[in-house]
Design a protein around this nucleic acid. Structure first.
Lengths: 332, 332
DNA sequence: CCGCATAATGTAAACGTTTACATCCACTCG
DNA sequence: CGAGTGGATGTAAACGTTTACATTATGCGG
């Protein structure tokens, strides 16, 4: 049916071994025969069979990305970062997403086994330790947004704590004293760290006792609900720090609906710097995370592991965040 | 090394053939032996080797998605739609992107050959006919946003013309008479169709001669530039229809900077209904396209082809759009 | 009881590569 | 001029499955 290495060998009048050598750029082939082989190959439009190749080489030249979801700007950026890094290395990218819980993620990982040379896993759930058992011993993997603690795997995290700490300091520096936070979903590591950063900054200013924490789940709706609660408060905070931008936006809308002026009466800040942050009125002060960088860095770490298995120290890296001050925490 | 089918066979005291049969759910195996085999397999944590399997079955249980880019909400949604459909079928998804031109896309397609059972290709370039030659004869493929014309492949398109036509009619119905358009990049099929829909609607109202078309390339910046030009016009249009939302947003900002009131002085509409459309002030009237549906529909069409190769008619489908009226084309 | 259909299981070939090893050949050097 | 050397090439095994075909066991009708 399809043209195989044998056909090329026959056409070039050599053995399959020589064809294989020529095509893989080994040096022990005469220039003349190599040329003849390449000629025949392109004439026949020969394409090596990847299945056969990876059967024997035990390499797929593919890496897998296991993500909790694909929705929204965040994952779009992340995949993009991974993708450009992968294509630069000539590696393929297998994606799998929509994993509400660790079970689904486990299933995804299992089904990828054997199809990929390595895995990029994002699992912002606290039950991520679960994953360690389901990750096959031999398969290199890099974790993203995972608890850095007891891992056999290198881990890359955003500096959630640092970003939140810096943002809270910024709000304090702007004169705010009652800085409320809208928290993220329970059991989400990023959310936990952001909350911790906020609280630590308050504590450093001896304001922790006053701290007001409102429930949220990263959705715009939950931010809106929190905004309503804030608007109804007798004694309102003078700043609100939402654990992500979408909640900040929801909160902003709720406050606007109740005639609460931002930043005049309440300063507002988010986290992530999604594109929408620049388009709301007033523009949203937020913490920028270089998401594509995170993807690229994780990928590169994985490639390093693939190239020199077991030689690199398993360590946990933290990518810095940067605060972006816009009108929502501005002067007026 | 890894546990193979032979190990399972040995452990269960049967031949490899029986193991294969049991695991693949063939009926010609005793319940008793099947049970013994399944037991042994799970005890050994056996995972079939996909490479070996696809080598002989000539199936990879993977489909490839070749996209021009991964950036932004649009592709995020698209991949998401494809991904959920794929996981429902137990198929894997291989993605490849960042194809500025047809050459790169061709390279991507070639490199996917043999790794996938079928291909989902989005190529909004007019030079897409190029692709036909590089797509291997035997590989099923479904095209998205491609010229429906001379294709061996089924094609799914958004109803760009219909959406633009309907939106222009809406603006006309609101009393606008001088409806300018900010066009998309040259050679982009979606952009062409949207422009055509706009022009046809104007022609139907005998207003085509007046039609003002401004250059754009789908970027926010180009929309902003167009907005500046409009603001500077002696005789301004009373409505602007941008070929996508990001340009509409850019235009909106430019107009705001020059104190042109939207929708008071100029009504504004976009296309795509990206999330940002709801967050700008005023909220943006736009054409909603169910992007995830597009992905899912294309995927399903591909699966149909995979299951019954060559039996389905090669036809071109068009997915409807729906206009969403918000404040930017509102009464005030 | 014998042969025969039927069902369960085993044997081995095939899939298309890569690669260890064998072979061959042309030199070089003593 | 012959043995040795080394480089190019060929041969064949191996990778881990699936599956056509062969074999064996089982039950049944004559």
């Amino acid at each position: 049916m399809a043209v195989t290495i044998k056909d090329v060998a026959k056409a070039a009048g050599v053995s399959v071994a020589s064809v294989s050598r020529a095509l893989n750029g080994r040096d022990n082939v005469t220039d003349e025969t190599r040329h003849r082989i390449l000629d025949a190959a392109s004439k026949l439009r020969y394409r090596p069979n990847d299945a056969a190749r990876s059967l024997i080489t035990r390499r797929t030249r593919t890496i897998g990305a296991v993500l909790p979801d694909l929705h929204g700007e965040f994952f779009s950026e992340l995949i993009r970062g991974i993708d450009v890094a992968a294509r630069a290395q000539g590696l393929h990218l297998l994606v799998s997403s929509s994993h509400g819980d660790a079970d689904e993620a486990t299933a995804a990982i299992r089904s990828m086994q054997g199809r990929v040379d390595g895995l990029l896993v994002m699992s912002p759930h606290v039950d991520a330790s679960f994953l360690h058992e389901s990750l096959p011993e031999a398969l290199p993997a890099v974790l993203m947004n995972a608890p850095p603690e007891p891992s056999r795997f290198p881990t890359l995290n955003l500096d959630n704590h640092g970003g939140a700490f810096a943002m809270t300091r910024h709000l304090l520096a702007r004169g705010c004293r009652r800085i409320a936070m809208i928290g993220g979903p329970a059991g989400n590591l990023d959310a936990d760290e952001r909350r911790r950063g906020w609280l630590d900054a308050l504590a450093a200013a001896s304001l922790a006792r006053d701290a007001l924490l409102l429930d949220g789940d990263f959705s715009e709706e939950s931010g809106h609900a929190a905004g309503l609660r804030i608007a109804a408060l007798a004694r309102r905070p003078d700043a609100v720090f939402a654990a992500n931008d979408m909640m900040a936006v929801g909160c902003l809308i709720a406050l606007a609906e109740h005639g609460v002026h931002v930043p005049g009466e309440i300063a507002l800040a988010g986290f992530d710097d999604v594109p929408i942050a620049r388009y709301v009125t007033p523009q949203l002060t937020t913490v920028r995370v270089r998401i594509a960088d995170l993807g690229r860095a994780a990928f590169n770490r994985l490639v390093a592991e693939l190239e020199a298995p077991g030689t690199l120290p398993v360590r946990s890296e933290v990518l810095p965040c940067e605060i972006v001050v816009r009108a929502s925490s501005g002067t007026t």
